[in-house]
Write a protein that binds this DNA or RNA. Structure first.
Lengths: 205, 205
DNA sequence: GTGTATCTGTGAAAATATTCACAGAAAATA
DNA sequence: TATTTTCTGTGAATATTTTCACAGATACAC
C-alpha cells in the first residue's frame, strides 16, 4: 500500500513529468526530477517503487512510460468526474481552467443564484444549487471543487453528500463538516500564508 | 521544536478558533475542535502541547487565549509583509481577499503588463515586474503569492529571490525552482484533484 | 466541602515515513 | 567485448509522527 505522503509526492512528480513531456524530454532520472521538484532522489525512487511496476532497472525512467504508470495508479485514466459548486469569480476561474484540459471530466457547475447561472457562459451545464444532489447522482460525479461563500459550506456539503460525491477540494475559508466522511483537501489562502509565516518564524530560531 | 505536520494542523486549528470566536464561543474543548477540524482530539492536544505554553490544565481551552498563543507562535502578530506577483484574475482575487482582512500586511502587487497596472483599481501600490527586487527589498517583503503565468515563474522566482523574499505561495501549475531555497507551498488545482482522485482509487481497493 | 464527571498535558509505546547503502541492471566508453 | 560509469530498486536502519493511557487539574452538582 502506498503511504499517503508518497501519493502526494507522486502527484507532484506527475506535474513535473508533464513539464518534461511538453519540453519533449524522453528520459527522466531521479536526479533530474529532484532538481525539478525538490524531492530528494532517493525518496522519489522509493515512492515509485511503491507502485510495484517494473521500472527501467539501471536506465533512466522513460517519461511517457512513467506517466502512464502514474495515471494508472492515480486513477487519472478514468477521467474522474468533477463539478464546481459556487460560481463566483473563483469558481468561474476553476471551471475555465478545468475545461481547458482534458484531464478531468467537468460535468456540471452549481450556484445558489439563478441569475449567475443564466448569465455565465460556459461549455458546462450549470444548475441551481438545490438540484445538486439529483444531478450529481444522475451523472456520477465523484469530486467537487467547493467555491461557495463561507456561509453556504454546510448546506452545500450536505447536498454533495446526498449526491454521492466522495472528495472535495475546498477553496472556502471554513472547514468542511467532517461527519460526512468526505476526502477533503482544503486550500485556504490565509491558512497557507500562515503556514509559511510560521515556517519563517521557526527558521529564525 | 514543533514538528512540521503539527504546525500545519495548528494553522488549521487557528481557522476553526476564528470561526468559534466569530460565533462568540468563549471555550473550546479538544473534542469540539476535533468535530470542527477532523483532527483527532489527542493529536490536537499533543500539537498544542508542543507550544510549551501553560494550558488550562483540566478545563477547556479559552478561545481567545489559545488564539493569542497561536498568533505568537505562528508569528501572525507581526503581520507578515506579503506581495502578490501576477495580477491576472486569480492574482487580483488574492489581492482583494488579502486586503479584506487585517491579518497580513499587503505591501505591493506586481505584473509584467503595465496596462494591467494602470487599469487595476487597488488600495495597494502596484508595480511593473522588473521593479520587484528593489521594491521588495525596500519594503521588507517576506512572503509572495505567486499568480503569474506558468511561463513567467522562473524569472519571477529569480526576482523574488533578489528581493529577499523567503516564502512563496505558488498558485501556478509549475514547480518553483528549488535552488533558491524558498519555503514553498504549492496549490495547483490539478494536482490537488489528482491527489483526491488517487485517494478514491486507493479507497476502492 | 465532597464526590463525580470531564478535561488537559505528556511520557512512553506503536505506527509511519524517510534515509541509507549497496546489489545489480542498463548505458556509455574505448 | 570488456570496462567503467551511471542508474534504479529495495531491504534494513533511522528518524519522525501519531496514538495511547493515565496522572493530575478543573468544573459542577448537590
Amino acid at each position: 500500500m502506498v503511504p499517503k505522503p508518497a501519493l502526494e509526492r507522486l502527484c507532484r512528480i506527475y506535474t513535473s513529468l508533464e513539464e518534461m513531456d511538453t519540453a519533449a524530454s524522453v528520459y527522466a532520472s531521479s536526479r533530474e526530477l529532484e532538481d525539478m521538484t525538490g524531492i530528494p532522489a532517493h525518496t522519489l525512487r522509493k515512492d515509485i517503487s511503491y507502485l510495484d511496476q517494473p521500472g527501467p532497472g539501471g536506465g533512466k525512467y522513460r517519461v511517457e512510460r512513467l506517466m502512464a504508470v502514474l495515471e494508472q495508479t492515480l486513477g487519472l485514466k478514468r477521467r474522474p468526474k468533477v463539478c464546481v459548486a459556487g460560481l463566483g469569480p473563483l469558481g468561474q476561474l476553476c471551471l475555465k481552467m478545468l475545461c481547458s484540459r482534458r484531464e478531468f471530466e467537468v460535468v456540471a457547475g452549481f450556484d445558489a443564484n439563478i441569475n449567475v447561472i443564466e448569465l455565465t457562459e460556459s461549455d458546462v451545464d450549470l444548475f441551481p444549487s438545490y438540484e445538486l444532489p439529483a444531478v450529481a447522482r444522475a451523472r456520477g460525479i465523484e469530486l467537487a471543487v467547493l467555491t461557495v461563500a463561507d456561509g453556504e459550506v454546510e448546506k452545500t456539503a450536505a447536498r454533495l453528500y446526498d449526491g454521492g460525491v466522495r472528495g472535495i477540494l475546498n477553496y472556502t475559508g471554513v472547514t468542511v463538516p467532517p461527519e460526512y466522511g468526505f476526502d477533503v483537501r482544503s486550500v485556504s489562502l490565509f491558512e497557507e500564508l500562515r503556514i509559511l509565516a510560521a515556517g519563517l518564524r521557526a527558521a529564525e530560531k
